[in-house]
Design a protein around this nucleic acid. Structure first.
Lengths: 136, 136
DNA sequence: CTAAGTGCAAAATGTTTGCATACTT
DNA sequence: AAGTATGCAAACATTTTGCACTTAG
């Protein structure tokens, strides 16, 4: 189900740079459009494939807002890898804000799911959707 | 954005009955298939439109698991409301299986996130990604 | 030289819409 | 009779795939 990229290509570089400097909510379509404007073109299949790789590698996150509109991608950044504590992500459905959360209770849930339900959660890909403090 | 049905039709009845007796995770496609097997056919547009109505009326819930796979629907009934035990979902990254979970610890997390982090999680949209028992 | 990535066009997927017909009230 | 629901087929939007070609290591 997952791919991880092994070669460093021009397309991957530009794509990643674009995501880094953007503030969330970037869709595959946005990427294609942006690159068309820039002159430096990139095939849409490449966009989709690279985005998938980057998600697999935990470099960006993918957000499903609702089934019909396109998926959004967002660069995660270094905040998460600083120490050994695991980072979970909360995404506000209203303002789109991404909240990084280091929290013991969340790590406990991880253990609980594994011990009791035999489900090995992948924190990198798991996103809690909801409404943030500011938007309530 | 929403419609609510005003007439009681044969199709709506059968559809609702099917959802009631099913245990979660019914897709629009499932409904169509089921009805084809039954002989009593139902148009797919009707299925989508009725499902939307039922969601609007708060009779069923809609779950978006990931953007590409079809949306799931579930009759709410008393099971979910009797206690306010909430359904969470786990999705296996390997086999794609969707696991339905009623779990106290998960409800605790919900409270914890709200009390301590002021984040009001939306369980309908939140999915835990990871690896299921069979795939480990 | 080999494995991996690219890009095009075509296919697949899930959902929505237009419209004539049929059913509920 | 008026308003609503149905069902077909066609339209849609997003994402995935097949395949020949290019590029990175």
């Amino acid at each position: 189900m997952g791919t991880q990229s092994k070669y460093k290509t021009k397309q991957r570089d530009i794509l990643l740079k674009y995501l880094q400097k953007s503030t969330g909510h970037i869709t595959a379509g946005d990427v294609c459009e942006y690159f068309k404007e820039q002159g430096s073109s990139i095939g849409q299949s490449t966009v989709y494939r690279q985005l998938e790789s980057l998600v697999d590698e935990g470099i960006i996150n993918k957000y499903i807002i609702d089934g019909t509109s396109p998926a959004c991608f967002e660069y995660i950044g270094d905040t998460c890898h600083a120490d050994d504590s695991i980072c979970f992500h909360c995404k506000c459905e209203k303002c789109g804000k991404l909240i990084h959360m280091h929290c013991d209770e969340l790590e406990e849930i991880q253990h609980h799911l594994y011990e009791e339900h035999h489900f090995k959660i992948n924190p990198m890909r798991t996103v809690f959707y909801g409404v943030c403090e500011d938007c309530q």
